[in-house]
């Protein structure tokens, strides 16, 4: 991004700020997470630790709220349980990860543009550009950005645990914000491979670590711009569309299960959740 670049692309740059993201995407990676299938087993979360060099912070720091789980399973009890003796309808599980918003609120507030929108529709976080102002997480309604409050390298990976570290992405040191990347290293590898073989990426050719691990297949990952991908079909099936939220938009079929969390904040999340199904007759 030189001066020339700024001058030439200023209008695009500005519009990006107003309307969110790019206008010519190469891919738009997205997900569909079926809460009917999610059993809250933590497989995805652990897979994420394994794939993405996530630091184990230990009990004391976990207590302080400094854990680094990019993919966390939130467990909620039903509001109705307050009046019951037992949580008869079970728990509510919500896998929460970076929603890779199309109009991400984290992006405009970063003073050094360490977080920005890629042509793949991802919220990139460039670790070595980050200066640690932490505004991005303050402005994230999902609170899915994690800050390296300490240097974890020595404590989290005592030898030989450090041999497990994935060389495809860096290990973040103190003072750097990090977050779910939709396993960008896998995306990169797949894109390189497809390019080498002179073909388009095939849906299902690769998956994020969480989607791969999920025993019930609740997480579906893919390119929402590929009309034949599973994730696109799911989005279409549930009549969830990308783009800004307007109340004027013809309301989707109310019976369908697709929704995006905090869509009304106009952040255009890339993850569609499917409502949890509840038996009403018990």
């Amino acid at each position: 991004m030189s001066f020339k670049n700024i001058l030439e692309n200023f209008s695009k740059y500005r519009r990006g700020a107003e309307e969110g993201g790019h206008h010519e995407y190469e891919h738009r990676w997205g997900m569909a997470i079926d809460l009917n299938l999610c059993i809250g087993c933590n497989a995805c979360s652990t897979a994420c630790y394994a794939e993405n060099n996530l630091a184990v912070v230990g009990k004391d720091k976990f207590e302080k709220g400094q854990a680094m789980h990019w993919m966390r399973i939130e467990r909620y009890w039903d509001d109705a349980d307050a009046g019951r003796d037992f949580p008869e309808q079970g728990a509510l599980f919500l896998p929460m990860l970076c929603q890779q918003c199309g109009a991400a609120t984290c992006e405009p507030v970063c003073p050094v543009a360490a977080t920005y929108h890629t042509p793949d529709g991802l919220n990139a976080q460039v670790y070595n550009r980050c200066i640690g102002s932490r505004y991005c997480n303050n402005n994230c309604p999902f609170r899915v950005r994690y800050f390296n409050f300490w240097s974890y390298y020595e404590s989290s990976w005592p030898e030989p645990l450090n041999m497990q570290l994935n060389p495809d992405l860096s290990v973040r040191d103190k003072g750097v914000m990090e977050k779910c990347t939709f396993c960008v290293q896998r995306i990169r590898t797949a894109k390189d491979k497809a390019q080498r073989e002179n073909r388009a990426i095939v849906d299902g050719e690769f998956q994020t670590a969480c989607a791969q691990a999920c025993p019930t297949g609740a997480i579906v990952f893919g390119d929402t711009m590929d009309p034949n991908s599973r994730v696109t079909k799911l989005w279409q099936e549930h009549e969830v569309e990308r783009g800004p939220y307007t109340s004027k938009k013809p309301k989707q079929n109310a019976e369908l299960r697709g929704y995006r969390i905090f869509e009304e904040l106009n952040v255009d999340p890339s993850i569609m959740y499917l409502e949890r199904v509840r038996e009403t007759e018990v």
Binding site: L35, F62, A67, H69, R72, E74, R75, Y76, W77, D78, D79, D81, A82, L92, F93, L94, E255, R257, Y259, I261, Y273, E275, R276, V277, R278, E279, T280, E281
Partner: peptide, 18 residues
């Protein structure tokens, strides 16, 4: 892990009848 035990009425996990 987790601050609130319920969703505080926010539609995070929505449910639908079977």
């Amino acid at each position: 892990m987790g601050g609130s035990e319920t969703q505080m009425g926010r539609p995070l996990v929505r449910t639908v009848s079977a």
